[in-house]
Amino acid sequence: MSEKLNLVIADRDTGYMALLADYIRETEWSKRLSVRQVTKPETLREHVRSQSAQLYLAHPDFDFGEHAGGCRIRLYETKQEAADPAAVTGIYKYQPLHQLLGKLFELYRQLSATSGSNTDKDAAAVYSVFSASGGVGKTTVSIQLARAFAENGDRCLYWNMELVPGTYMPKEADAELTARFVYGLRANAPWIGDCLPGILSRAEPYGFDYFSGFVKAKEALDLTRDDVLKLVEYVKRTGRYDVIVFDLDATIHDRAIAALTGSDEILWIVTEDGESSARTFRFLAQLDQWQGKGGSPDVQRIRFVMNKHTGYAGNALSTDGMSDHRAAPISAKLPYVPGWKHAHGANRTTPEPLFYAGIAKLASDVRVGRGGGPGDYRSDNKIAARTYP
Results as ranks from 00 to 15, higher is better:
4 K>L: 09
9 I>M: 15
14 T>W: 01
15 G>C: 00
16 Y>K: 03
19 L>N: 07
21 A>W: 10
26 E>R: 09
32 R>N: 03
33 L>H: 13
34 S>P: 05
34 S>C: 09
36 R>L: 12
38 V>T: 09
38 V>L: 06
44 L>Y: 12
46 E>T: 12
46 E>G: 10
50 S>I: 08
52 S>R: 14
57 L>K: 11
58 A>R: 15
58 A>Y: 09
59 H>R: 06
61 D>Y: 04
63 D>R: 01
63 D>P: 00
66 E>M: 13
71 C>S: 07
73 I>Y: 00
76 Y>I: 07
89 T>C: 05
92 Y>P: 12
96 P>F: 05
102 G>M: 10
102 G>V: 04
109 R>Q: 09
109 R>M: 09
113 A>H: 06
114 T>H: 10
117 S>R: 12
121 K>A: 15
126 V>M: 10
127 Y>I: 11
127 Y>Q: 06
128 S>Y: 07
129 V>I: 14
129 V>N: 11
130 F>W: 08
134 G>K: 02
135 G>W: 00
136 V>W: 00
150 A>L: 04
155 R>A: 09
157 L>R: 03
162 E>P: 02
163 L>M: 04
163 L>P: 00
165 P>H: 03
165 P>A: 03
169 M>R: 01
171 K>H: 07
174 D>L: 08
174 D>T: 02
179 A>D: 11
180 R>A: 13
180 R>W: 05
182 V>M: 11
186 R>Y: 04
189 A>S: 12
189 A>R: 08
191 W>F: 13
209 D>V: 01
211 F>L: 04
212 S>W: 05
221 L>G: 02
221 L>I: 08
222 D>V: 13
223 L>S: 00
227 D>S: 04
227 D>G: 06
230 K>F: 10
230 K>N: 13
235 V>H: 02
242 D>C: 06
249 D>M: 10
252 I>H: 08
252 I>W: 08
261 T>N: 13
265 E>N: 11
266 I>G: 11
266 I>W: 11
267 L>I: 15
271 T>K: 03
272 E>L: 01
273 D>G: 02
274 G>P: 09
274 G>L: 14
274 G>Y: 11
275 E>I: 15
279 R>F: 06
281 F>M: 04
286 Q>E: 06
293 K>F: 12
294 G>P: 11
298 D>P: 08
298 D>T: 02
301 R>K: 13
302 I>Y: 02
302 I>R: 01
304 F>W: 05
304 F>K: 00
304 F>G: 02
309 H>E: 11
316 A>Y: 14
317 L>N: 03
318 S>Q: 08
318 S>N: 12
319 T>M: 08
322 M>A: 07
324 D>V: 08
328 A>L: 06
329 P>I: 05
329 P>K: 05
330 I>S: 02
331 S>G: 10
333 K>T: 04
340 W>D: 00
340 W>K: 00
345 G>L: 02
345 G>C: 04
348 R>K: 15
354 L>K: 10
356 Y>C: 01
357 A>M: 06
358 G>D: 03
373 G>R: 12
375 G>W: 15
375 G>V: 12
376 D>P: 09
377 Y>E: 13
380 D>Y: 07
381 N>R: 06
382 K>G: 05
383 I>W: 13
384 A>Q: 04
384 A>W: 06
387 T>K: 10
389 P>N: 03
